[in-house]
């Protein structure tokens, strides 16, 4: 066969494929993106919680974006435990100071980072949380200490609107 030369027809083929690919992408993307969170789900993205009735050593669980959020008013002993741990001992090193803006209040997603179960309060080897599904132990700062979970329990975006109200999200 003779040496292949690029000609006008090759340009037309390439251009047609390119336009076709863009067209196919433009059709496929809406079909994929429709499965992402919709506007009504996103609209529920923040919640205000009144914490005035939560005494020291108590945890309340609120639903935010369909997920449980633990709001724990920690005792001095728990804060002391959380802050005295050496970072080298942690699987996912994070300072307690970075996890709790106000040391008395720990606000975090009550979702085990392994496969999404809800850990149990005041259980496990580190007096924090224990996930019954696959045995992950968390400390009083919600940091992973033992078990299959890869990271610490997540801290959502939150702020104190006033002394008794926390806005999550």
């Amino acid at each position: 066969m003779a040496e292949k030369k690029t000609n006008r027809r090759d340009f037309l083929f390439t251009a047609t494929y390119a336009v076709g690919a863009v067209g196919a992408g433009a059709v496929v993307w809406p079909m994929i993106d429709q499965m992402n969170p919709d506007a009504s789900v996103k609209a529920l993205a923040s919640t205000e919680v009144d914490v005035s009735s939560v005494g020291p050593g108590k945890t309340i669980t609120v639903l935010w974006r369909g997920k449980p959020v633990f709001i724990r008013r920690r005792t001095d002993k728990e804060i002391e435990e959380a802050r005295s741990v050496k970072l080298e001992d942690l699987k996912h090193p994070e300072k307690d100071e970075d996890r709790a803006q106000n040391p008395e209040w720990l606000v975090m997603l009550g979702v085990c980072t392994h496969l999404g179960c809800v850990p149990l309060d005041q259980k496990g080897d580190y007096n924090g949380w224990f996930c019954p599904c696959h045995g992950s132990h968390y400390d009083t700062s919600g940091r992973i200490r033992k078990g299959p979970a890869p990271t610490n329990m997540e801290i959502p975006k939150y702020e104190f609107v006033n002394a008794n109200t926390i806005k999550i999200g």
Binding site: M35, P37, V41, R65, G66, K67
Partner: peptide, 17 residues
């Protein structure tokens, strides 16, 4: 995971799909 759920947790959009 968010895409599979259609939200931030397993919820109604997950059930319908």
């Amino acid at each position: 995971v968010t895409w599979l759920w259609g939200g931030y947790s397993v919820d109604n959009p997950t059930l319908t799909r």
